[in-house]
């Protein structure tokens, strides 16, 4: 658990950070909270010569609400997400999910930007961002561009982000209706055996809108289009919920690990998805 030598940079502007990673190429990585990267360095599973710390860039932190649009700076910590009153009233699923990430010590340091940008299938925020249909802002040498969370993830640790780009902020629309983030894990601090985020809106007795996304049930988060289609327009009867659960489970593609074999994970996926849908319906 002793990392190899590296150079440490602490730029105070995003342009400065982009310049550094552009200059050092794949020998450089940006570090946000460091809870994924630092252990990898200590295990010597990643070799890099330049660590570009984003802590010194003031503009990357904070939560703003403009009408229905919520924007969260990449360096905002999980803890800040949990305690932000306006965020908790306009998109309560965020706090519900963030409270299920790791433990308080990790949440004081771990950031939303690091969580979504790393591409680790075990992280909870990517699935949640797909559920919210969030847009990621990326800053590169030639300027800024936007990528939807639902198309950002390609494979485990592979994303749409270019190596010389930095994820600076996340924005999404405030939610109405019901919500739930349901996660089964072995213990506090563990990644999900299976987790699901669900949003449901009702118009009278009918489901007018829905969103369902899964965490750690494939090598990327999964937005479950077929499951959403199974709910929207229905009266959310048990049969409709069952069809949505089945569609979502079918969309999952878990792999075996110490949490259990595939058959078990698919079963648990079904349990947590159903539980999340039912709880979201109750709250809708």
């Amino acid at each position: 658990m002793i990392p190899a030598a590296f150079n440490y940079h602490r730029p105070d502007t995003i342009e400065g950070a982009v310049k550094l990673i552009n200059e050092f190429g794949d020998e450089a990585r940006v570090v946000a909270g460091g809870h994924s990267l630092i252990p990898m360095m200590k295990l010597r599973m990643t070799g890099l010569s330049h660590l570009v710390d984003l802590q010194g860039i003031g503009g990357l932190k904070g939560i703003s609400v403009d009408g229905d649009t919520i924007t969260i700076g990449a360096m905002t910590t999980q803890h800040e997400l949990i305690v932000h009153k306006q965020l908790s009233s306009r998109a309560p699923i965020i706090a519900e999910a963030a409270l299920q990430i790791a433990d308080p010590q990790v949440r004081y340091v771990g950031t939303i930007g690091g969580n979504v940008a790393n591409g680790d299938p075990g992280n909870d925020m990517p699935g949640l961002m797909q559920c919210l249909d969030a847009i990621y802002s990326l800053q590169g040498p030639s300027g800024q561009r936007s990528v939807p969370a639902r198309t950002f993830y390609e494979a485990a640790y592979f994303t749409e982000r270019e190596e010389d780009e930095i994820l600076t902020s996340i924005s999404f629309q405030a939610t109405g209706g019901g919500y739930a983030y349901e996660k089964q894990k072995r213990k506090i601090g563990d990644y999900a055996t299976a987790a699901a985020g669900v949003l449901i809106e009702k118009d009278g007795d009918k489901c007018s809108a829905a969103s369902i996304a899964l965490t750690n049930l494939a090598d990327t988060p999964i937005y479950c289009e077929a499951a959403v289609a199974a709910l929207v327009g229905t009266a959310l009867d048990p049969g409709d919920v069952g069809a949505a659960v089945k569609a979502a489970v079918d969309a999952s593609d878990p792999s075996e690990d110490n949490r259990g074999p595939i058959e078990f994970k698919k079963h648990i996926a079904g349990v947590v998805i159903r539980c999340a849908i039912e709880r979201a319906i109750e709250r809708a």
Partner: peptide
Amino acid sequence: HDHWRIWKIANDLGLH
């Protein structure tokens, strides 16, 4: 007796 092994007991006994 972690989650999946307990689940497997139930599964093998036909409780799912």
